[in-house]
């Protein structure tokens, strides 16, 4: 069976007064139906821009400068706005980071849900309303009839995010792109939303791209992980394998900087230096200036290379494959 989504050498550039910022520079990955991919990276690594590029929602001065995004056989970059509009909300839905900002403050919830149904299907308003109500029930909102007649400001952040998820689920999409949807929420609500999204996707066979900077959140959720740095994917593979055995020095640094138990009194390790400006990227490997393993070879940019065990790494000096070394 063909892949649901294949992204090949995606280039999304922002033309600014100070030069061209290559927010996404050669991103390649693919996604099966029903698969959950965790797209991990720091702020400015290009993970959100990758998500918006799929839906063609990159705001000017940004634009897709090259590459292919093939969704279920259709090239979205070539297809352009008419094709994208038909897919948005219908087959590819998106959930945003800040639930306080994603719902229009002056429109009632029913208006915002019904219009989503009617944007893609010619059905009577009453039927659209019934579907909206069912979607609210599905995401665990009590008293849906009352909630439908409410305005967003009458909801808490967690409730608003549930409404946004309900809107994303209205057309039972093949793919949901979730852009840090739990970052702005309390930890307890975070866990609820996380498990709900997981079970809803499993029920309907929806594939999910979960964009986050939080490895802990995504490690319990995703089937696969893709770690981004400076607009590139630098390590990619099955979640358990990447977490247990990070091979790129950056991934290892990320995992080591997460506090664990039994570490009282010890300094938390951190990655030295700062994320480079996209306008002034170093030559060669973009991580080299911060990398403890960098040497002369790192002056040329490494390619994302498959390592045979369903993983890929973009590094000249990856860490040893611990599992293979210590395997009996």
């Amino acid at each position: 069976m063909s892949k649901l989504l294949e992204i090949n050498d995606l280039q999304t550039h922002f033309h600014t007064r100070d030069g061209v910022a290559k927010a996404v520079d050669g991103v390649t990955f693919s996604l099966d139906r029903g698969e959950i991919l965790g797209l991990v990276g720091e702020s400015g690594s290009g993970k959100s821009v990758t998500g918006f590029s799929i839906l063609g929602l990159v705001d000017p001065p940004g634009r897709i400068a090259g590459g292919r995004i093939v969704f279920d056989g259709d090239d979205l970059v070539a297809g352009g706005e008419p094709m994208l509009r038909g897919l948005r909300g219908k087959r590819i839905a998106m959930i945003f980071q800040d639930p306080m900002m994603t719902l229009n403050p002056v429109l009632r919830i029913d208006t915002q849900m019904v219009e989503t149904v009617l944007a893609h299907e010619r059905v009577p308003r009453s039927e659209a309303l019934a579907r909206a109500r069912a979607a609210l029930v599905q995401v665990g909102i009590s008293a849906p009839d009352e909630r439908l007649r409410s305005y967003p400001h009458q909801f808490s952040g967690g409730m608003r995010q549930r409404v946004a998820i309900a809107i994303a689920l209205l057309h039972k999409p093949d793919l949901i792109i979730a852009d840090e949807p739990t970052t702005a929420l309390d930890v307890t609500i975070q866990a609820q939303i996380l498990s709900e999204v997981q079970s809803l996707c499993a029920q309907s066979g929806t594939a999910l791209i979960w964009i986050t900077h939080d490895l802990a959140v995504v490690s319990g959720l995703a089937d696969r992980l893709a770690v981004m740095y400076a607009g590139r994917i630098i390590e990619e593979g099955p979640t358990a394998s990447v977490i247990a055995n990070p091979r790129h020095p950056y991934t290892r640094g990320l995992i080591d900087s997460v506090p664990k138990g039994k570490q009282h009194g010890r300094m938390l390790s951190q990655i030295k230096g700062m994320t480079p400006s996209l306008l002034h990227l170093p030559e060669g490997c973009k991580f080299a200036p911060r990398c403890p393993r960098a040497d002369a070879a790192c002056r040329s940019e490494p390619a994302l290379t498959p390592t045979g065990d369903d993983r890929s790494i973009r590094c000249h000096h990856p860490h040893e494959d611990a599992e293979r070394v210590h395997a009996p």
């Binding site: 839906l55 929602l57 705001d59 509009r85 038909g86 897919l87 948005r88 909300g89 219908k90 839905a93 998106m94 945003f96 980071q97 800040d98 900002m101 994603t102 719902l103 229009n104 403050p105 219009e115 989503t116 944007a119 893609h120 946004a164 809107i167």
Partner: peptide, 18 residues
Amino acid sequence: SLQDYVKFARAKGLSGRR
């Protein structure tokens, strides 16, 4: 037009007119 809710409205597949 820079607000998230406008982008979200577009992400829902609404027409530019709406």
